[in-house]
């Protein structure tokens, strides 16, 4: 006799939804006007539609780039590969950028993975926890002798910087504004994009020059101001380094990206 425990029934039903497995059919009852097939069909169809909708919500620009049919194919493939493990359906779709970058059907259009990356970052910034940013005054309050050991704690809304080889952000803006489509273009120089949310609940993004991108990354990884100045020697003359580095910090505070400054004996 097959296992008919509560768990076995649930596993059979789940596999019907995720893989079209038919074992569940022998465990349920149909009626003449409402067959087992129709009954299960309501669940299997709703399962996919709900997740496809959720992906469409999170990735409107990827949807526009691929068109309805293309997006449907992508969503279906993604759902089969990465069923949801999330409590809120809003978080479903977190690996779409990687999926696009690796999948034979889409990896030759790297713009798609970039767009997915950008859209997921926008959502991440939007959904992140509230925070209280420091103002630039906090920098002025740091005594000169503590600057070398200065470290920053960044806003929870700040996303992993995005490295783009394509004009993904311009395309996103055109799609978002519903203006005339612009052609995808490979950039002459790769760009680094920073995405966060300000205290007015607006999602912000801007691109960084290569030295700022490096400094930002290093500070996010916990390096102190002295290490940043050392590293900036790669791009700048000695006499310009300190001013440039201090300028970055100033800008990040103005952007509401910093929630704490740690100095000297406070370990990161």
């Amino acid at each position: 006799m097959p296992d008919r425990s509560l768990r076995a029934i649930q596993q059979a039903m789940q596999q019907c939804l995720t893989d079209g497995d038919e074992r569940i059919r022998s465990l349920i009852v149909g009626t003449p006007g409402f067959s087992i097939e129709t009954r299960l069909g309501i669940y299997t169809e709703a399962y996919r539609l709900r997740l496809i909708d959720a992906l469409g919500d999170a990735y409107p620009a990827v949807h526009t780039l691929l068109g309805d049919e293309g997006f449907h194919a992508l969503a279906t493939a993604y759902i089969d590969r990465h069923p949801s493990h999330f409590r809120s359906i809003r978080w479903f779709g977190d690996r779409l950028a990687t999926f696009l970058a690796d999948h034979p059907a889409w990896k030759d259009t790297p713009l798609l993975a970039e767009m997915a990356r950008f859209e997921w970052s926008l959502r991440g910034a939007f959904d992140a926890a509230d925070f209280t940013p420091l103002t630039t005054q906090a920098l002025h309050d740091v005594p000169p002798e503590h600057w070398a050991g200065l470290r920053l704690v960044f806003s929870p809304t700040l996303q992993e910087p995005c490295y783009f080889n394509w004009n993904s952000v311009k395309l996103w803006q055109a799609i978002d504004a519903e203006s005339d489509p612009i052609p995808p273009q490979r950039l002459a120089q790769p760009e680094t994009w920073l995405i966060w949310r300000n205290t007015e609940q607006q999602t912000r993004f801007r691109s960084l020059l290569v030295d700022e991108a490096w400094a930002m990354n290093s500070m996010r990884q916990g390096q102190d101001f002295a290490a940043i100045c050392d590293g900036l020697g790669e791009w700048l003359d000695e006499e310009h380094i300190a001013a440039r580095a201090a300028g970055f910090l100033h800008q990040w505070l103005e952007d509401e990206l910093v929630v704490a400054i740690e100095t000297g004996n406070t370990s990161p």
Binding site: S5, L6, R7, I9, Q10, Q11, M13, Q14, L17, T18, Y43, A46, Y47, R50, L51, A54, P83, S84, H85, F86, R87, I89, F92
Partner: peptide
């Protein structure tokens, strides 16, 4: 859902003493 998966649906139960 089971095995860590969320099917994002409210699925019915068998009406048994075990359940």
């Amino acid at each position: 859902g089971v095995e860590g998966i969320n099917l994002h649906d409210l699925l019915p139960l068998p009406y048994t003493e075990e359940a």
